[in-house]
Design a binder for these strands. Structure first.
Lengths: 229, 229
DNA sequence: CGTGCGCTTGACTTTTTTCAATAAAGGTGG
DNA sequence: CCACCTTTATTGAAAAAAGTCAAGCGCACG
């Protein structure tokens, strides 16, 4: 019952009839995950995918010499690790909890069964996959076509938009993690934050809270029409 | 009839009953595209997606100052422009023909209709989306965690593998395009090819054909365990 | 037969990373 | 509640990788 209510709030399961939600609740396996715990590793055989109900996790790639690139920070109710459900292979990246979390695990075969019976669920899942494809395409563009100040500016604007366009917002993750998400290193991020502060584009209140002072210039930076001196 | 046979060969439609293939042939709109022609632009409203039966196209992002990052070079029978079919928004990138091509266009609403009636088609499409997600994740890793020689080495090994692990293979695209695919510029690519030649890792036969001379070192390069002197 | 495009090469600049040292912050146990 | 210790963040100086600008070659195409 409890489970059904939680599951019903997932965007992935929006618009499904009660009966289907019951089926999903049947196959969902609750799991608790401690901060820092590895949820899965690249190359692991994938038995299913996850959705977080509380906490936070990062999905990331690791280079042989230990540098990491974060692909994705989970939001609540959003599935992750779903790629191998449909390609039938291994996980393409690592997943690790950034905070104590609770999740549901959906076993692959059971889930595919439900999808086959349920076109609405299939379409929802395709929307999830397509949206992430769009995000990854933006990330590729960003890594290749913009330099770090531009990526950071774009990230700030996106965070601000998510909170309804407010001037103040929270990073949500450590600067260390933010650097890895933007495809750079903490030192570089630190310098650029300092420069943005000097030029009065932003103000860093406490360590994870930012105020946008000059949205217009930030936008120009993000679009590559301007550069940080 | 003709159309059905061509459509039946697409991996996306593998394993579908004849009846479904007929339905798909019904909605498919044939289209010819000339070399250099823009198929769609980022931000265009998307009425459907494409599959090439001959020729070649690139899917790419453009920065404000005109630099491009290629996301993807199409292979025959593989869909592209399918993301907005499921998110209901605009195309996330540009598509342009690299050669004279023939394509089928699948109108969005008709296609979604078929998917709803046909779980196998839905699963095939999810496999396509998931596979591309995997490829994009590798691209992000590559752009962020490896330098250009490593990316190039990985690309060579992948091309070689596609042709069954042969020592000789063809680039398939101009070096200009290859640079844009690897997230760099022609000058840098040119220099690195020259260095790889000097160190006897590869031999450049004519301008688009490469022979691998030292697969082991190439692999070390791709894994970041070694660098080009 | 020229014109243009793709490709190469050189010299220089910019951006980012690396390495190293220090400072600040946060959590833990006394 | 404080002292301690680990983690996180900042800053500087130097190195490396890649990009820019500019010039020149060669081949294909009209």
């Amino acid at each position: 019952m409890e489970t059904i209510n939680q599951i019903a709030s997932f965007p992935l399961f929006q618009g499904l009839p009660a009966e289907q939600l019951r089926d999903l609740a049947q196959i969902a396996v609750p799991r608790t995950i401690k901060k820092g715990q590895t949820i899965f590793s690249e190359g692991d055989a994938a038995a299913g995918f996850y959705v977080l109900v509380s906490g936070r996790a990062k999905i990331f790639k690791l280079s042989p010499d230990g540098k990491e690139q974060i692909l994705h920070i989970t939001t609540l109710g959003e599935p992750f690790g779903e790629v191998p459900v449909f390609t039938g292979e291994q996980f393409p990246a690592y997943a690790q909890a950034l905070a104590d979390s609770r999740a549901f695990f959906f076993p692959r075969l059971d889930f595919v069964n439900l999808i086959q019976k349920n076109p609405a669920l299939a379409l929802n899942m395709m929307a999830v996959l397509a949206r992430r494809l769009r995000i990854f395409a933006d990330m590729i563009e960003s890594l290749s076509l913009r330099e770090v100040p531009g990526r950071l500016a774009a990230h700030f604007l996106s965070l601000s938009d998510q909170e309804g366009g407010t001037r103040e917002f929270t990073l949500g993750i450590s600067k260390n993690q933010l650097a890895r998400l933007l495809g750079t290193i903490p030192e570089t991020l630190s310098r650029i934050l300092a420069r943005m502060g000097n030029e009065k584009l932003i103000e860093i209140r406490d360590s994870r809270n930012i105020t946008i002072l000059d949205r217009a210039t930030l936008k120009e930076l993000a679009e590559g029409e301007k550069r940080l001196s």
